[in-house]
């Protein structure tokens, strides 16, 4: 089997040319395309990885925001609840205070009313008692009683001392015929008693005292001397007046302010 060396040479050349042509038109373009695709895939994978990382980051951020939002909402809710609770307590306290005040007001009004009623009853009772007492004492008072009153009046006159005596003496001395000292009694005093009183007054004043005797049934029983603003009295009416004043003061003190 001969070898044609020209053909060998030609085939060698052909093969070398074919190698170059295949490199130029096949391997290089195909490998370039594969490399480009691998690069694109790698880029896409990198993009996907970065997108996944970004997604994770955003998810974390979202979760953090959610958490913060939940916390904030819980805080606001708690604050609102606390505020509502405080407001409710305040309103309840206010309502309670208002109710207490109203209740106190009502109780006070009731008490005042009761006390006023009591005072009214007491006043009425006092008035009735005094009316009855006055009537009884008026019915009972007589000359004997007036005599006794006169004695008591004289004794009291004699018992006066100190500044009261000085003032009385000054008033008695100031009395004149034009403006005499006035001695009032419920009944007309007998002459003996008028003399006794006059004597006692003159003894106190140390000089004759112009004196006018008056009869005033309103005194019930008793004697009243007045001269220049000074007044000396003893009468059942005074006792009853003092009693009445004492009772009224007691009622006023017991009544609410």
């Amino acid at each position: 089997m001969p070898i044609d060396w020209f053909t060998v040479g030609a085939q060698l050349l052909n093969f070398v040319i074919l190698v170059w042509l295949m490199k130029r038109f096949l391997y290089q373009p195909v490998l370039d395309a594969i490399a480009a695709r691998e690069q694109k895939i790698a880029a896409a994978l990198a993009d996907a990885a970065s997108a996944a990382a970004e997604a994770h980051r955003r998810q974390d951020e979202f979760q953090q925001k959610n958490q913060a939002f939940d916390d904030q909402r819980a805080t606001l809710l708690r604050e609102a609840r606390d505020a509502a609770k405080a407001e409710r307590e305040r309103l309840q306290n206010e309502a309670r205070e208002a109710a207490d005040a109203a209740s106190a007001q009502r109780a006070k009004a009731l008490l005042t009313e009761v006390r006023q009623l009591h005072a009214e009853i007491a006043r009425y009772t006092q008035q009735q008692v005094f009316d009855i007492a006055r009537r009884v004492l008026g019915d009972l008072s007589g000359v004997t009683l007036e005599q006794r009153m006169c004695e008591v009046f004289v004794r009291r006159l004699e018992a006066i001392e100190g500044p009261a005596l000085v003032a009385l003496c000054a008033a008695l001395r100031a009395a004149s015929e034009a403006e005499p000292a006035s001695l009032r009694s419920a009944f007309a005093l007998p002459a003996a008693q008028q003399a006794a009183i006059r004597a006692a007054l003159e003894a106190s004043a140390g000089q004759p005292v112009p004196l006018r005797f008056e009869t005033i049934p309103g005194l019930i029983g008793g004697i009243e001397l007045s001269a220049y603003g000074q007044k000396l009295a003893w009468s059942i009416s005074d006792y009853l007046g003092a009693l009445s004043s004492g009772l009224e003061e007691t009622i006023r003190a017991a009544a609410p302010a």
Binding site: N14, L21, F25, L26, P29, V30, A33, Q39
Partner: peptide, 24 residues
């Protein structure tokens, strides 16, 4: 030689035609 050339033409022309529109 002739069939070698023919094969070369087919191979190279086919490769050139196909690789002309390669895409990545």
């Amino acid at each position: 030689i002739v069939f070698t050339w023919a094969l070369m033409v087919v191979l190279v022309l086919g490769a050139a035609l196909i690789t002309r529109r390669l895409t990545a």
